[in-house]
Structures are given as C-alpha cells and as structure tokens.
C-alpha cells in the first residue's frame, strides 16, 4: 500500500476510535444488533470514503493521463474515450441486480412489517421482564424505580423528587400543610378507595389548621382533638384503615398505583395519569423508590 492510502486509513482509524471511546463512556452496549450495524456502517463510511479517494489522489502523483480524445471540444474542454473503471462498473451492475432482485423477489416474499416486528418484540420482552423480576427484592426494585423516575417523573418532580420549589408534589414528604388544608376544604374524590369520596369541610377553622399541621408533621406526638373526625376513615394512626382510604402517614403501593393510573388534581395542580405506561413490576418499583425518598432511606 502506498503512503496516501495509509494516511487516509489512519485518519479513518482516529475517527472510529474517538467515536468508540465516547460511546463506551456512555455505557452503550455495542453488541445490540442495531448499535452494532450502525457502528459497522460508520466504519465502512470512514474507511471506504477516505481510502478510495486516497487511491485516486495517489494516481495524481503516479499515473499519467492517456487515452483517445473524442472529436468534440467545448470551450477548450476535451473528452477521452476511456473505458469505465472496472471496479466501479462491477459494483454498479452488482447493486442494480441486487436492487431488482429485492424489488421483485426479496421484499415481496418477505412481507416484512415494521409494526408486526415491534409487536412481537415487545410482547416477548415484556413476558421475559415480568417473569424475571416478579419476585425482585427491594434493592432491585428501588434501583429500577429510580431509573424510571429520572426519565419519566423528574421533569415535574425534579431529580431529587423535591417538586421543584412547589411546582409539583414534594415527594420527600407525605404532604404539606397547605395541601392537607386544600383537601379538607374541597374534599377529595379522585381515586376509587372503598370509602368513596371524602366530603368537603369536615372540620373548619382552628381545628382544620391543627389537623393539617399534625398530618403534615408526620403525625408525631399527640393528635389534636379534631383528628377523631379523620380517624374514622383514615384510621387512628392515619395509615388508611387497611386500604379503606388513603394512607396519610406514608406513601404506599395503593396510593402510587392510584396516582399513576388516575393522575391527581390537587391544590398544587394536576398530575397527568400514566395509565398503560408501566408494567405491574415497574409500578411496584416506582412505589418502592418513592417510599425511600420520604423515609430518608
């Protein structure tokens, strides 16, 4: 091989290695077929484009122009009657035959459908996923939940779940005083808890203030007198009477499931529902992760 081509291949090599290094830094799995084909394609582009053009550049150095000139001449420009470069002609014929074969034979007989391929792939994948993680331990669920949270929830709740200074629910706490007051004043009938709707204005004035402060404070110490009104449904300890009404003390799986499937309208604003977006395992994982946000674990 001559100098020019070697230089071109070195350049191609540098580009390919640089791409490889950057991609690897992002933990990309190059054994995935799509990634692998793309990477091979990139290599082909760099090697062939640089290499072949270097070959012709080299000919400028070493070869000389020859051939029979045609009779035509335009503004001093002549034209040789040279034959076609062999490699070019054969590649041309080859690709044309391949294309015609593909058009008339290869494609029609394959009847490829991209949606069909998608459906099969996803079905197989989901089955495998559910089976593999059906009995995942808490640590796995938490890590899984975190990864989903960062992709799907962080734009509203923030990377740390703090609710972006009041733009969405601060998930590091169960509820703020203002939120509880909002529910007391307006009632709540968003989710389908067995207790049904919670009526508005069950308690008022100072009582409401006290209850709200108690709930928002994580129900520590003595309950205010008015709490008994609430305890009827939410339980003395506020954990929801075994799923009859929402748990006010801590996030639990039922609540997260409800929020994800029905969304939530509250005093902060609205959260859209994510119905049909997650598998049961993913929902459980999100719940696990959110529970750790508020419990400080």
């Amino acid at each position: 091989m001559n100098g020019m081509i070697v230089k071109a291949l070195v350049m191609a090599g540098v580009l390919i290695v640089a791409t490889f290094v950057v991609v690897k830094q992002m933990n990309i799995d190059l054994s995935d077929p799509v990634n692998m084909i793309t990477f091979l394609g990139a290599i082909a582009i760099a090697v062939l484009a640089f290499g072949v053009s270097a070959k012709y550049m080299q000919q400028m150095k070493t070869d000389t122009a020859t051939g029979e000139l045609a009779e035509d001449n335009w503004d001093g420009i002549g034209e040789y009657k040279n034959e076609l470069p062999a490699g070019w002609s054969w590649s041309y014929v080859g690709t044309l035959i391949w294309a015609i074969w593909y058009f008339l034979w290869g494609y029609p007989l394959n009847e490829y459908s991209q949606i069909g391929e998608y459906n099969e792939e996803v079905k197989a994948y989901n089955a495998k996923f559910e089976k593999k993680h059906k009995n995942a331990d808490q640590k796995t669920l938490k890590a899984m939940g975190e990864s989903i949270f960062l992709v799907q929830c962080a734009p509203c709740h923030g990377d740390t779940g703090d609710g972006l200074s009041g733009k969405a629910h601060d998930l590091t706490k169960r509820m703020s005083k203002a939120q509880v007051l909002g529910v007391i004043k307006n009632g709540s009938h968003y989710f389908k808890y067995p207790m049904g709707a919670m009526p508005p204005n069950l308690v008022q004035g100072k009582d409401a203030e006290e209850v709200a402060a108690y709930v928002a404070g994580g129900m520590k110490g003595d309950a205010p007198k008015a709490w008994t009104t609430c305890a009827g449904c939410h339980g003395q300890d506020g954990t929801g009477n075994g799923g009859q009404a929402p748990n006010l003390k801590a996030f639990d799986d039922t609540l997260i499931h409800n929020v994800l499937t029905m969304g939530k309208k509250g005093s902060i604003g609205q959260m859209p529902s994510f119905v049909n977006r997650f598998t049961p395992v993913q929902e459980k994982a999100l719940a696990e992760f959110i529970k750790t946000l508020s419990s400080g674990k």
Binding site: L164, M271, P272
Partner: peptide, 20 residues
C-alpha cells in the same frame, strides 16, 4: 398531552430552565 399539563407548559415556555 398525555404526560404534561397546562401549568407545566406555562412554567416551561416562560423559562424552560425553571423546570429542566
């Protein structure tokens, strides 16, 4: 429209950095 809300858009279009 499935996973964002009007008030989120209000914040975001006014100042995208305030939410992201």
């Amino acid at each position: 429209g499935n996973y964002r809300t009007p008030d989120w858009h209000a914040n975001h279009m006014w100042d995208p950095k305030s939410v992201v």
